Structures are given as structure tokens and as C-alpha cells.
Amino acid sequence: MPVISDPAQFNEEELYVDLRSALGLPLYLKCEGFNFAGSIKMKAATEMVDAAEREGLLRPGSVLVESSSGNLGVALSVIAASRGYRFQCVTDVRCNEASVRLMESLGSRVHIIEEPDTHGGFLGARIAYVRRLCASDDRYVWLNQYTNQGNWKAHYRTTAPAIARRFPRLDVLFVGAGTTGTLMGCARWFWQWRRRVHIVAVDSIGSVTFGGPPGRRMIPGLGTSVPPPLLDMSYIDDVVRVRETDTVRMCRSLAHRGFLFGGSTGTVVSGAGQWLDHHGRRGLTAVAIAPDLGERYLDTVYREDWLTEGAESELAGLMAAPR
């Protein structure tokens, strides 16, 4: 086992779950939640902070600020605490309470946006608030995960080559799309070094990332209400869109087999299953990236009455509707 002094020095890179026995699905799930931030966002956070330090953007007295639906905020909280920075996360009401408490426990401040922007949704409102903060005080340093090249370079450097080493005959890779950092880093690497690998992006219905109509989304993580600047569709072979009701079903199906994953993972696995059902399952080596674990979703996705309460009634109706 490694001996570390910095939480960013540890990340389990080689763990995969074979879903054939759990779900009857010929899919290997790369688990990215085993680090001190609990999600794949630890990689992007580390890459972006390291670059900001090299470029002299972070100085004594600097205050990191970032818009996040939860996981990147936790990752930046871990790094800020370990390196002596202050950090403010700007999130919105969909962020899991567990993520908010984690960030605050690590010494970060959390500002929660209560109302969406008319055109940009919650993401647009979060970004507008970050811009106002930066305009008010030059101590704020916005890494801007939505345009920061380190977001995708982290996965070009680590995630994609790790998958290629383990699966040299990989046929298809499923990657969830949020900021599209993970997606673009992996897609660019495979395009350059293993061009025959089919790249399938998985998105939530209601997201505008791939041009779909905007709609209400309740599960944080994947999907956006503003087109992601990092996305380059020339690297993507297919897109699968997943209903949030199917995300919940998949999360609970995995949990019933002992695997407690987060909402983003449930979406990716559900999308992979849809694609494999449509294109055929035999003879393919398929991998999906699991961005997170499920503890932060215990009060939402995994709570039996979540879909029937208050603001969730609309989603509950969809869950009960025939497919």
C-alpha cells in the first residue's frame, strides 16, 4: 500500500466491475470513486490547480472559486484544505446535502443558488454569480472547469491510457457527459492512439449538451443547461440519452447486488445497456466509466419516498408511467 502525505497522491486506477453476473450486461465498469474526494473529479481538480500554481495565478491570499453541482466542489475542497487555500463553491438547490456538508467540513464556503436563470438554467445562474464575485475582489481565482483545458487533459493523461492498458482490444467506451472533460480527454486519446474504439457519450434527457430540448433535471452530475465549450462532436461516434427514472432504476438494481454507485454512474450504465441492446452484445469488449459512489445519494436516489415528495412529484409520475 502507498504511503502519502497529500490526498491528491492517491487514486485507485485499476478497479473494474464485471457487470455480467450482476446485471447480465457484457460491460466492464471502471470505478473512479476510490480517492479522498470520492469521484473522478479529483483528477480534473488536481490538474487545474497544479496548472494555476505553475502559471502563478494562485498566490498567498488567493481564494479559489468554482461553480459545481457537487463532486468537483468536494474535490477542490480536499485540495484547498491540503494546500492551504480558501475555497468557495457556488452550487444550486439540486446539490446533495451530503456534498454540501462534506465541503463545509473541509473548511470551504458554499453558496447555494435558489433560482435558475431564465435562459441558462441553474448553471447559468451559478456562472453569473461567480463572475460577480471575481469582479468584486481580485483575490478570487476562478478555475472555470467549463473552459479549462486541464479538465480534459487530466483524462487524456491518466484515464484513457489506463483503460487501454487493461483492455488492449477495447471496442466501445461509454462516458457520461457533464462539462465533457472526461469525455473529451478520453475521446481525444483514443482517436489518436486507438482510433477503432467507438466512443459513446451518455447524457441525461433534459440536458442541452447535444442539442436536445431543455428540461427539468433533478439528479446532479451529468447534463448541462448551457452548451459545454469543451465539447468537440468530431470525436464522438454516438450519443445515448437517459431518462432520470432509468437512472434511479439502474442505481437501485446495482445496489441490490451490493454495488452502491452514484447517479452519474447509474446514468452511464443505463445508457450503455440501451446502446448494447440496440447494437448487439456479442463479441464486443465494452467499458463504461463510473464517475462516483453512492453514499451522497442516500437521501435522494436511494430513498424510497424521494420520488413522491414535493418537487419530485413530476419525476414520480414519469417513474410510474409505462415504458
Results as ranks from 00 to 15, higher is better:
Ala160Cys: 10
Leu133Pro: 02
Arg131Pro: 06
Ile127Leu: 15
Trp142Phe: 15
His155Ser: 13
Ala125Cys: 01
Trp152Tyr: 15
Asp138Ser: 12
Phe167Ala: 04
Gly150Met: 09
Phe167Lys: 08
Tyr140Asn: 02
Ala125Val: 00
Cys134Pro: 03
Ile163Met: 00
Ser136Ile: 01
Phe122Glu: 09
Arg169Pro: 00
Arg157Gln: 12
Tyr140Met: 07
His155Asp: 13
Trp142Val: 06
Gln149Arg: 13
Tyr156Ile: 14
Gly124Trp: 06
Arg157Lys: 14
Ile163Ser: 01
Val130Trp: 04
Arg165Asn: 09
Arg139Lys: 11
Tyr129Gly: 00
Arg139Glu: 02
Arg169Ser: 10
Tyr146Arg: 02
Ala162Trp: 11
Thr147Val: 13
Gly124Ala: 07
Ile163Arg: 02
Ile127Val: 15
Ala128Gly: 10
Arg131Met: 12
Asp138Glu: 12
Pro168Cys: 07
Gln149Lys: 14
Ile163Asn: 06
Ala160Thr: 01
Arg132His: 10
Arg169Thr: 07
Thr158Arg: 11
Lys153Met: 14
Asp137Lys: 00
Thr159Asn: 08
Arg139Gly: 02
Thr147Glu: 14
Gly150Ile: 11
Tyr156Leu: 14
Phe167His: 11
Pro161Gly: 07
Val141Asn: 01
Val130Leu: 07
Tyr140Val: 03
Gln149Thr: 15
Arg166Ser: 14
Arg166Tyr: 04
Arg166Ala: 15
Arg169Met: 05
Asp138Ala: 12
Pro161Asn: 03
Ala125Phe: 00
Leu133Cys: 08
Asp138Trp: 00
Arg131Val: 04
Arg131Trp: 05
Asp138Cys: 04
Arg157Asn: 13
Trp152Cys: 01
Tyr146Gln: 08
Ala125Asn: 00
Ala162Leu: 14
Arg126Ser: 03
Thr147Gln: 14
Gln149Met: 04
Arg157Asp: 13
Arg132Thr: 09
Val130Glu: 05
Tyr140Asp: 00
Arg157Met: 07
Trp142Arg: 06
Arg169Gln: 13
Gln145Ser: 09
Arg126Thr: 02
Tyr156Ala: 12
Arg157Trp: 08
Leu143Gly: 07
His155Tyr: 12
Tyr140Phe: 15
Asn151Val: 08
Arg166Thr: 14
Arg157Thr: 15
Gly150Tyr: 08
Tyr156Asp: 11
Tyr156Met: 11
Ala125Tyr: 00
Arg126Cys: 09
Thr147Asn: 13
Ala162Glu: 15
Pro161Val: 02
Asn148Trp: 08
Gln145Ala: 09
Ala128Thr: 14
Leu123Val: 13
